[in-house]
Computed example of a mutant assay.
Amino acid sequence: MKYIICFFIFSLSIQAKELVMLTDLSPLRWENRIIVVSTINNQDRIFNIFEQHETELNERDIAWFIMQNDTISSNFNGNMTDSLVSNIVKHYKINTQVEQDKVLLIGKDGAIKWTAQHLDLAVLFSEIDAMPMRQAEMRTQ
């Protein structure tokens, strides 16, 4: 009976986690590093870059979000609200009208760690791998 109750509680906790509706990025704090890319017309190219580096992104606990106009693509498995894009833009002060991409790296603590005008995963991975929390993760893996 004890095992059935534990399994039931575990199942409920998994289901509750899956039902998270992202209205902003705060529920990902302490679980994921986040890459936000705001782009005018490079969404498909950036999506392909992320797909090609899925293993490296997963190793670093990265959730990525590509915003183009009012649409958003992501590797986040849960549901995203319609207000997510506007809340990200407002919170991180992203100018979506600029004719160039903007890339943000947000640490597990929720702070912006790095910004750039174009996506360069080699540089991004280097920045992440130099972080103390990532160093500790690599030691335990």
Score class of each variant (00 low, 15 high):
W114H: 14
H53C: 04
T96K: 07
M138T: 11
L22Y: 06
N75M: 03
E18S: 03
M138V: 14
I128W: 00
I49A: 11
E137P: 13
K113P: 07
I112K: 14
I49M: 10
K93G: 11
S26F: 06
S73H: 12
E127Y: 04
D82R: 14
L124Y: 00
N58R: 14
F8I: 10
M131V: 04
R33N: 09
V85W: 02
I34L: 06
R134T: 09
E137W: 03
E59K: 11
I46L: 09
M80E: 09
K17E: 15
Q52N: 11
F8D: 02
W114E: 08
Q15P: 06
R45I: 11
P132S: 01
A136E: 13
S13D: 09
Y3G: 11
E51A: 03
D70G: 07
Q117L: 04
K108Q: 14
L28G: 00
H53W: 03
I94K: 00
R29Q: 15
E127H: 02
Q68E: 10
D61I: 01
R60W: 02
N48D: 13
E51K: 00
S74F: 03
N48K: 05
I94Y: 01
L124D: 06
N69K: 14
Q68C: 11
F8N: 05
T81D: 15
P132M: 03
I72N: 03
Q117F: 08
D120P: 04
T71C: 09
F7H: 03
W30D: 12
E18K: 06
N87K: 03
T96E: 08
K108I: 11
D61Y: 00
A16D: 07
V37W: 00
I106C: 09
S11T: 12
I94L: 01
I14W: 06
V36N: 01
I66N: 03
S126T: 07
F10Q: 08
N79G: 15
N79D: 15
A63S: 07
L105M: 09
D101W: 00
Q117A: 05
F125K: 01
W114G: 07
L119P: 14
S38A: 09
I112Q: 12
A130W: 12
E99G: 15
N69Y: 15
I4Q: 08
D44C: 04
E51Y: 11
D101Y: 00
E18F: 02
I106H: 06
I49D: 14
F50P: 05
T96N: 10
A63C: 09
T115V: 12
Q52R: 10
V36G: 02
T96Q: 13
D82V: 10
W64V: 01
L28N: 00
W64H: 05
L19P: 10
F125C: 04
L25A: 00
S74N: 05
A111I: 06
L19F: 06
L121V: 13
E59I: 13
M138N: 15
L12G: 05
F10V: 13
A16S: 13
E31P: 09
D44T: 06
I40A: 14
K102S: 14
Q43A: 13
F7T: 04
T55K: 15
F47K: 10
L124F: 00
L104K: 01
N95R: 02
R134W: 00
F65I: 12
H118F: 08
Q15G: 04
Q15M: 11
R45K: 13
V98F: 09
Q68W: 08
S13P: 09
L28P: 08
F47M: 08
K90D: 15
K113A: 12
V123S: 13
A136H: 07
